[in-house]
Nucleic acid binder design. Sequence first.
DNA 1: TCTTTATTCAACCGATTGGTTGATTGTGGC
DNA 2: GCCACAATCAACCAATCGGTTGAATAAAGA
Lengths: 124, 124
Amino acid sequence: MSDPLSTVFAALADPTRRAILSMLLEDDMAVTDVAAPFEMSLAAISKHLTVLAEAGLISREKRGRVIWCKLDPDALKEASVWMQGFGQFDPVDLDDFERFLLVELRDDAAPDDTAEPRSDLQEI
Amino acid sequence: MSDPLSTVFAALADPTRRAILSMLLEDDMAVTDVAAPFEMSLAAISKHLTVLAEAGLISREKRGRVIWCKLDPDALKEASVWMQGFGQFDPVDLDDFERFLLVELRDDAAPDDTAEPRSDLQEI
DNA sequence: TCTTTATTCAACCGATTGGTTGATTGTGGC
DNA sequence: GCCACAATCAACCAATCGGTTGAATAAAGA
């Protein structure tokens, strides 16, 4: 892996991590609070946070005995610029974003996230 | 994995696959021609193309005995919209994109792509 | 028809990923 | 000083990933 862009995309390629980013979009959070809505162990969430931090997507700051996680969206800019070059998309539509955020939170952050087979899309 | 957004991001999280997308940005290409600049085997490139196709990023069409690969940027829109929500980025700067494309092609598509350790970025 | 070319398939491999559990470290409150 | 809590570490696991090689399939050209 190793290059920054790959690291960012790999970090985003996991629904749990994207759900964490969505949560942090609303407010900074302690690790324990980030982990609360998920079914997996705290250690697993801690690992996810490390992945996000290494990608530069979040930063962690220790204050007392709790570590605060905060969104750090600069790393997304590079990746976003890369993507935008491919489809001449319309300027950002915030309503679109809200809709996708809702879909994300419903599909991914929910504990009973069932794996759909995706038998479509295969074109050849 | 399984959800579309994860599939797209995972497909983008590989420098070879991004280099392929960059190549297809200029023109449609046959599989053999896609594979030419890379050092890896044709079978490996074929697998990468399958990953890109399953993510919806490209489509493949058989014409005679050669399979033509063509960029299909719609799948990027969803992911792009998701990303844009995090940093209120400036409207797309095509010059920025050109610059990143060059960096990509130099760093990733080159056969002597050395893995840099990335000892930075770790904040905690 | 025979050969060449284009592409994928199948089996295999080592490395990485995403999770677990249990032990460990560091801090705050009593 | 203790105990409880916050978070990570360490070891382990099964599954997936990114590559290889060699065989198979399919179409074009002589």
